[in-house]
Design a protein around this nucleic acid. Sequence first.
DNA 1: CTGAAAGCGCTTACAG
DNA 2: CTGAAAGCGCTTACAG
Lengths: 335, 335
Amino acid sequence: MPTLQDVAEKAGVSTATVSKVLSNTPYFTEKTRRKVMHAVEELGYAPNLPARALSGGKTHIIAVTFPYVYEAIFTDPLVLRILEGIETECTQRGYNILLSTPLLSADGPDEHYLNLIRSGYVEGVIAIDNVPLASAFEPVKKRGIPGVVLGYHTGDYFVRSDDVSGGLQMMNHILGLGHRKIGIISVPEVLHFSIYHRLEGMRRAAERAGLNFDDLPKANGDFSVNSGEKCAAQLLSEYRDITALICLNDRMAMGAIRHAHEKGRHVPDNLTIVGYDDIPMAGSFEPPLTTIDQQAPEMGRASARMLFEVLDNKKPAPIHVPTHLVIRQSAAPPV
Amino acid sequence: MPTLQDVAEKAGVSTATVSKVLSNTPYFTEKTRRKVMHAVEELGYAPNLPARALSGGKTHIIAVTFPYVYEAIFTDPLVLRILEGIETECTQRGYNILLSTPLLSADGPDEHYLNLIRSGYVEGVIAIDNVPLASAFEPVKKRGIPGVVLGYHTGDYFVRSDDVSGGLQMMNHILGLGHRKIGIISVPEVLHFSIYHRLEGMRRAAERAGLNFDDLPKANGDFSVNSGEKCAAQLLSEYRDITALICLNDRMAMGAIRHAHEKGRHVPDNLTIVGYDDIPMAGSFEPPLTTIDQQAPEMGRASARMLFEVLDNKKPAPIHVPTHLVIRQSAAPPV
DNA sequence: CTGAAAGCGCTTACAG
DNA sequence: CTGAAAGCGCTTACAG
């Protein structure tokens, strides 16, 4: 592989000059620039990034952390959509994405992750940080690496989905349809910060409509399809007058719908069931799911853009990515 | 951040000694080892990986490439499952994963990707390489970087799903149920090498049963749910006697089922529709999909293990990951 | 505008 | 078993 040295020799200039031309420093003649670029072309030179990192500090690597806890993140469709948004921005800037899956426990993230953070590879990090148990961003902050939090853990810079509004929109929609006997399929709040805020939004909508939110029947699943099925079974057998089920993610909604169908209840004619997330499959489910679109790719893009601003020594303001109610066919007025 | 230098001073030895102790070279006294490790602990030292990469050549970074073409890879659930398998192995070995999404065109991969390959960051690569249009592995090979191909493009080391067997199993199952009027929803073969082999497997099964495979009605979609819906519409209106539809991925099968339901046909009582891939949602769809499990996580794991063998200067044999027929409820005997 | 030289933090023969 | 020294390929003040 050709080195900067080789380029310098071929162009008949010093390595310092080549380095400056390549990094777009001003102050060199057009002629020099051309000589250098010509040599670069001829040799097919590409900079050695570890060397550049060692001397200059810029690694051109962004670490993106997905917490490894509570459920297989590798089956969560949102993960990929967020990554999509981040990738778009990073590629545009010539940055590379290092995928990191810190194993979170009460003691904090695992050793392998900590070593990565201290490795000198990471110029910036985007931390999906929504697990109350522990923060993946904490060690990043301590180490002084620029970063943005995608979620609710504390960071100077963050992007959040507008979960309160999402919960509120959904509850309003269900109330607007005329439902009053509403069951909620959630997950334990300790699993995910967003849950608390979505419930809070629902509470506001409910109380505005004169409903006591705390009295509404609730069951906790674990985000999985199966758990949605079980929770629906429990709720529907215990509270026979329920006309609508609000699920805190799409997969549990799908499980709930399956249960309803098994019991011979038609969704939405005979029972309303809605989800949250708008995963890729939501629109082709039967019935197509009424749900909340979190705009995952936009969250990814926004967090990457924010990180690049931080790397440029700016102080970007927090961003709340709006949620959208997606009305499909799993909700209807009660019979 | 403490450096190896700091550790050496604190331990009262040379940097060479520290380096050797840390890399587990034999030949040093237990006492020295303890002194060094003690200093490491005290200082919270972690090696600077760019420096290590520059001097030693080992970067501890594996690039994983997902081709960016034909459809949004970021909506393909298999991508994440493969990544899961790779992650497991890499973390175990203390390696990091650099996510790479080469943009493939007839001229080959894009410049950003090429620069990554020449960057000195990449110690090894796992290339998901199934797009006939161009190979992402080609530049890796040329550059002399160790790598394994997950797919059908040429590489010295490779892992493949047993697509022929997958197609064969599925066709056999459908034939075994008694179907003879079978429609096939595929995608153009130029999109994905696997398609060719799955069809080949189906052909063998069909001909073994005395059916002329070429005479079977076929339509091409593009992997998406919507395209499955359209293809089903076309096939079913053109060939009224079709009793079973074999789709080359689950999402198209879901689209096909949607179309069938809209037309008032019950699946599977009135029409059999099967998929391929066994994506996470397949089991909770209505009806639960009969499909082929490719064992995506195992493919990821196998390719990572193979790569580490190559990095250890071994010559691993190719691996064909077996496929499994997953019988659920979308297929039944014809009426 | 250009270059000589030091330095980034490691590893690796080579001596001892 | 341990250490001095060179070198990996860059960037960055500092001179000129």
